[in-house]
Design a protein around this nucleic acid. Structure first.
Lengths: 232, 232
DNA sequence: GTATGCGTTAATGAATGCATTGTCAATGGC
DNA sequence: GCCATTGACAATGCATTCATTAACGCATAC
């Protein structure tokens, strides 16, 4: 599930500085709920945890703050930002738009047989996982499918943005993974999407992906409301 | 022209730390071409320039690197990233999609008379500037028009993204401002857009804005190519 | 004359130290 | 008894310091 996949625009091949390590590790700990939303953590504690001095932790915190993952509160430590239903709406609106654009572009410009194979293999994995009712495996494959799809669009900035925000809803997805019905319909969407892309039907691909995300958002917001979670 | 408008998601009301000053000032110097694209600047030089120590400059550089404005090269200093035609395509694709979404949302949800007045006043300013052939004034008003439009969408994350990338093409816009014909057509677009929003015609608003950005992108890329600029 | 290697120089990444400032608690006054 | 004010403490922001490492220049050898 994207182990802190260095999605930044600036991730070419730099030697791993402590700051980069800190950013990656913190992001990972946040998306996997090792650091709970709403909790505060002193920079010195985090530094000890990551076996480095306060400086790189501080710098990583500043960077993650600019991405909306945490808030650096002067004498209270680094606060892991919870996502409200409103935040979720904001993020899904962005993801919907940009991922749909990626789908459109892919269909318009065409994919290599290799790339189509990759996408379809993710779908098959999802179906296998579904058959075994292995939700975690399904989520992993779903994650890969969408990340690969966007990445194939070859817009590095767009990929970076989507990756950033995808990371942020990851937490909520993990939470709702076992509350939702098995995602059979979702997989039908995936098939239809790849077919549309393969046929070069750009408008159709865009529409399918948009609808797909809209459904996901509705379910997410509804589940969170139903279970009385005001934020995650 | 948005004097380093603190567009980050994290900009609520924090006391101005040196890091924030550094980010704002550097961004400002970059977008106004005080620091030329492609040039390198030692952190110590920048620190002296900004009257602070290296630490906050370093931290600001890391943040700006994650936003794609600069590159921190270990022993060569902070490099101001030039934008190639490809980069411009990437950025415009994102801006087109997200700004059109904002227009759609505004039209769907409706604007207050006050907000409509604000937008129209920007348009009037543009027309006044156009009459005097004052390109700088036109650009300023155009900038404000689009920023306000997006901000009225009340999606803070979307606003932040658009602001970030808008900053990045600012340089190219300044450069081409005197190479392009006077933007009469552009203003017609603006009027049509606000009318569509006022009438609540969401699809129309989205389409107009999309077309508006597409035209802008084409002109930009063409001008840059015609003048033999491979990057700005 | 050119290329390669070594040494010096200098710039960044990270650690540490210090001062500022907000928080929390205790004490005193009303 | 409660609220306010003051003082001590603690955590961050930034400066300073240190070490690492790459770049550049010069010398030497081919």
């Amino acid at each position: 599930m994207s182990l802190a996949g260095e999605s930044d625009l600036s991730s070419e091949e730099k030697p791993v500085s402590q700051v980069r390590r800190a950013v990656a590790l913190l992001r990972e700990m946040i998306t996997t709920n090792k650091l709970l939303p709403g909790s505060n953590h002193l920079e010195s504690e985090l530094a000890k945890m990551l076996r480095m001095s306060r400086t790189p932790v501080h710098e990583a915190a500043i960077l993650l703050e600019s991405q909306g993952l945490v808030e650096v509160v002067p004498r209270r430590g680094v606060r892991i930002l919870p996502l409200s239903a409103d935040d979720m709406e904001e993020i899904y609106a962005i993801l919907t738009e940009l991922e749909s654009l990626a789908a459109y572009t892919l269909a318009r410009d065409g994919l290599s047989p290799d790339q189509l194979r990759t996408l379809r293999s993710h779908i098959q994995e999802m179906e296998a996982a579904l058959a075994k009712e292995d939700r975690q495996a399904w989520a992993r494959a779903d994650d890969l499918f969408h990340r690969d799809l966007v990445a194939m669009g070859r817009n590095r900035r767009l990929t970076a943005i989507v990756s950033t925000y995808w990371d942020q809803v990851q937490r909520a997805r993990l939470l709702t993974l076992f509350m939702r019905p098995l995602p059979h319909a979702s997989n039908a969407d995936h098939r239809a999407l790849v077919d549309a892309i393969a046929e070069g039907d750009a408008e159709q691909a865009r529409a399918i992906h948009r609808e797909h995300r809209l459904k996901a958002k509705r379910m997410m917001v509804e589940l969170i409301a139903r279970h009385g979670l005001t934020a995650v």
